[in-house]
Design a protein around this nucleic acid. Structure first.
Lengths: 164, 164
DNA sequence: CCCACAATGTTACAGTGTATCAGCGCGCAA
DNA sequence: TTGCGCGCTGATACACTGTAACATTGTGGG
């Protein structure tokens, strides 16, 4: 399950950076790819937040620790990470989140973005995938990729309001 | 039905500008809103294409007929049109298409974007909506808006390749 | 050591979207 | 008719997002 309270009072499901880094290392070792310092740092920053971060935001955070990191470098690292399913781009926000799944293959993801806390949760639904497949087949359309992003209020924020 | 061949050899379902303009006029009259010249022109340009157009692209086309139209004006018109469900923004492309439905309320839309011809088709699926609703309820998430965009190959382009 | 190649640094620039303020048009009240 | 208010448009400037091009560094294999 990807619903558990994080260590930083986040309101949405969120895996910490350790888990993301471990998975990234494993993936890169398996595929014989370089998990370089920059890529590691970018992933760490992204995974440290439950909400999606913009590339320039990431660059700023990385630059805060002395050595300046240009946005273009961040973009390259993000390209690498997204290609390998370690982070996802949120089209409706021009921002990035670390992937919270031990990756099957990148299909079937649903992103739940909370308007109140800005947090993002990632889930999958075979049923939706099924129905979408049927709908596409009926339309004679062969899909190669898709995005499904929902904006609203997450359970934690709804509960918080209810309590007052 | 929103699947019919347009008059300009488009490959995807596409309603011409006349229909879009007529609907826009009706909507604005009903809601007591101003369907100004600029808004009309922007909608006409957007509706004349089966593929999504960028705001700057629209501005260029409008400027072609003598009088220069700045991008900012186009954005304002697009804001108006999207707020009233007359055009939709395609997040994965940073572009806009005219709405092909007599609008229920804006929910449940699925956009099919063809990689080959660049055309876009708009459809709805109550079944997907159902499943999505269930998935969100299970996650304790209250949705306020959503986007579902699929990229791939449309039927016409698949057929064209098959024939050779 | 040297070479090939991948990754990063740096600068410049293109594309997308917004803030701000000024001018314009039009209805409406005095 | 004049003046006012208000929404729309024009125009400039700017912020944010993303990419191209080329130099430099690092890394691994001959």
């Amino acid at each position: 399950m990807h619903h558990h309270v994080g260590t930083q009072a986040e309101c949405c499901g969120h895996h910490g950076p350790e888990e993301a880094l471990a998975r990234a290392e494993a993936v890169c070792r398996a595929r014989d790819l370089q998990f370089t310092r920059l890529r590691r740092d970018v992933l760490e920053v992204v995974a440290s937040q439950a909400r999606p971060l913009g590339a320039y935001d990431i660059a700023e955070r990385l630059s805060a620790s002395g050595k300046r990191v240009a946005a273009v470098s961040v973009y390259r690292a993000l390209d690498f990470l997204t290609e390998n399913g370690l982070v996802h781009r949120i089209a409706s926000r021009n921002a990035f989140v670390s992937c919270g799944h031990t990756h099957t293959d990148g299909a079937g993801l649903v992103f739940l973005i909370c308007r109140s806390c800005g947090g993002i949760d990632e889930t999958t639904s075979p049923e939706i995938e099924d129905q979408l497949g049927r709908t596409l087949a009926k339309a004679g359309f062969r899909p190669s990729s898709r995005i499904l992003e929902v904006e609203g209020e997450c359970g934690a924020c709804l509960g918080r309001v209810a309590e007052g």
